[in-house]
Computed example of a mutant assay.
Amino acid sequence: MADDSRIQKTDIIGSYAAIGDSFTEGVGDPGPDGSYVGWADRFAVLLADQLPAPDETAGADSVHGLFRYANLAVRGRLLDQIVEEQVPRAKELAPDLVSFCAGGNDIIRPGTDPDDLAERFERAVADLTNAVGTVMVTTGFDTRGVPVLRHMRGKIATYNVHLRAIADRYHCPVLDLWSLRSIQDRRAWDNDRLHLSPEGHTRVALRAAQVLSLETPADPDQPWPPQAQRNTFEMRRDNIQWAREYLVPWIGRRLRGESSGDEVAAKRPDLLPL
């Protein structure tokens, strides 16, 4: 079956703004300066690479200097917070492309209705498409291999169906993470099992470039290298360590009504050269 999430490459993209939560901020992909890199930063580099050089002697630095990128995403943000805080800023910046990923933190909360969530998401998409060049809609992951989120797979699938329908109505390209099989591998995920690893973020960036019909340096779905199978004792030990280090603190924050992004600001609030 053909992948209908891809669009034909038309206009050159000279500016890009990413909005969303921890996934788009880049949590799980630490950079050398202590901040996070993430798929959106990596995707921005691929977008910059597609710009024509200003002259024959200009190198990669000159090309990247023509491209501007903002990342407004903040970890822990719910859909309504993203719409309130980040969508207006994205409209102000009015870039050629906006990637919009939101709703994941809502979906994992008990009692969330994916139908209602999708209606609010659609209103934001309608608002954005009136102010920016193109809005790329991002679906949720297939969480069958994520222990703490496996039971929410049905809700995520329902939400994804809505997102695809919204994208169709507003002529938005779709970054379909559900169909990206390579991120089903454990190595695509950080130790907390909730965020992608650097390699996982890289594969998402490559898929995003494919969606816009850009040339990519590698296939995001290329097979992972073989690895030795772990025995039951090792898996049980890892699960206990993960629960102690990540699951219990995560549950504690939920019970206290706290967010990991309470004291965090957007890492790139302005459209700036890479």
Rank of each mutant, 00 (worst) to 15 (best):
D4A: 15
D4I: 10
K9V: 08
A17S: 10
A18E: 02
I19H: 01
D21A: 14
F23W: 13
T24H: 11
E25I: 07
V27G: 01
V27R: 03
G28F: 03
G28H: 02
D29S: 07
G31R: 09
P32W: 13
Y36E: 10
V37L: 10
W39L: 03
D41E: 12
R42V: 02
R42W: 04
A44Q: 05
A44R: 05
V45A: 14
L46F: 08
L47D: 03
L47H: 04
L47T: 02
A48T: 08
Q50Y: 06
L51F: 04
A53S: 11
P54M: 06
D55C: 08
T57R: 11
A60V: 14
H64I: 09
H64K: 12
L66W: 09
F67L: 06
Y69H: 08
A70P: 00
R75Y: 05
G76P: 00
G76F: 01
D80P: 05
E85V: 11
V87N: 00
R89M: 15
A90H: 01
K91L: 15
A94S: 10
P95F: 00
D96G: 09
L97N: 05
V98I: 15
F100Y: 10
A102P: 02
G103M: 04
G103E: 01
D106A: 06
I108P: 08
P110H: 07
P110C: 08
T112E: 11
D113V: 03
P114E: 03
P114D: 05
D116I: 10
D116Y: 12
L117G: 01
E122R: 04
A124I: 13
V125K: 04
V125W: 12
A126C: 15
A126R: 11
A126Q: 14
D127C: 07
N130S: 15
V135P: 01
M136I: 05
F141N: 08
T143P: 13
V146W: 05
R150K: 14
M152P: 07
R153Q: 14
K155V: 09
Y159K: 04
A165K: 12
A167W: 04
Y170V: 10
P173G: 02
V174A: 03
L175Q: 01
D176R: 03
W178E: 02
S179L: 09
L180E: 00
L180W: 00
S182G: 05
S182W: 01
Q184I: 06
R186I: 11
R187H: 02
A188I: 00
W189K: 00
D190W: 12
H195I: 01
E199H: 13
G200W: 03
T202W: 09
V204G: 00
A205L: 10
Q210H: 14
Q210F: 11
L212W: 03
S213H: 11
L214N: 05
L214R: 07
E215A: 15
P220F: 09
W224G: 02
P226L: 07
P226V: 09
Q229H: 12
F233G: 13
A243N: 02
A243F: 07
E245F: 11
V248I: 13
P249D: 07
P249I: 06
W250A: 12
G252I: 08
R253L: 10
L255H: 13
E258M: 07
S259I: 03
S260I: 15
V264W: 08
A265V: 15
K267S: 15
P269N: 06
D270I: 07
L271A: 03
L272D: 10
